[in-house]
């Protein structure tokens, strides 16, 4: 009874964003303010065709299936034209590892083929630009802060000196005397 009620609640909760878990096209983005991103980054490179890939699962020989329960889900891909080898054991699912390995391979091939124009290189440049500009802003901010602090440090001195200047021995008094000799 309780479980049925929970399922009912679950159903009602999920009336919302269907498209979030439907694999829609890669171009779709879920943001309410698209103008925040001025420059479109290059698309993720597509994995190379399957006939160029040699796939192997790193699993010991011997019986499989029900008889053993290996947690080894590693996937190794070799890109035949370039000889790039990728090994992936990011998750416990071999199916997910296969997808991740293909994405990694695509990125590596992209770097090799396109060099400076590859997605990774462009991302790197953009990131560096951002970091540089942030560092510059930071420097500027702290420089002005420092200047303000120094100015604030000098001011009380001046006040203190002008306080003692009533006795007529402070430097300001001397300065005044120099400029306007009586």
């Amino acid at each position: 009874m309780l479980r049925a009620f929970g399922r009912l609640l679950g159903v009602q909760r999920r009336n919302g964003p269907w498209s979030l878990f439907n694999s829609a096209g890669p171009a779709q983005r879920f943001t309410t303010c698209p103008e925040l991103r001025h420059k479109q980054m290059p698309q993720r490179p597509k994995p190379p065709p399957e006939d160029e890939i040699e796939e192997s699962f790193l699993k010991g020989s011997g019986p499989g299936g029900q008889k053993i329960n290996k947690t080894n889900s590693a996937v190794q891909l070799k890109h035949k034209p370039t000889g790039i080898v990728i090994k992936c054991q990011a998750t416990r699912s071999r199916d997910q590892n296969r997808k991740i390995a293909r994405d990694l391979l695509a990125a590596k091939v992209d770097i090799l083929v396109n060099g400076d124009k590859s997605r990774a290189a462009i991302l790197e440049v953009t990131k560096k630009k951002k970091a540089d500009s942030a560092a510059k802003k930071r420097r500027r901010k702290y420089r002005s802060l420092e200047e303000e602090a120094e100015a604030a440090k000098i001011e009380p001195q001046i006040e203190a000196e002008s306080g003692t200047g009533a006795a007529g021995t402070g430097p300001k008094q001397i300065l005044h005397d120099e400029v306007y000799p009586l």
Binding site: G65, N69, K70, S73, R94
Partner: peptide, 10 residues
């Protein structure tokens, strides 16, 4: 209950 195997998944 038996654990699902990667071969079954494939």
């Amino acid at each position: 209950v038996l654990i699902p195997r990667p071969e079954t998944e494939a």
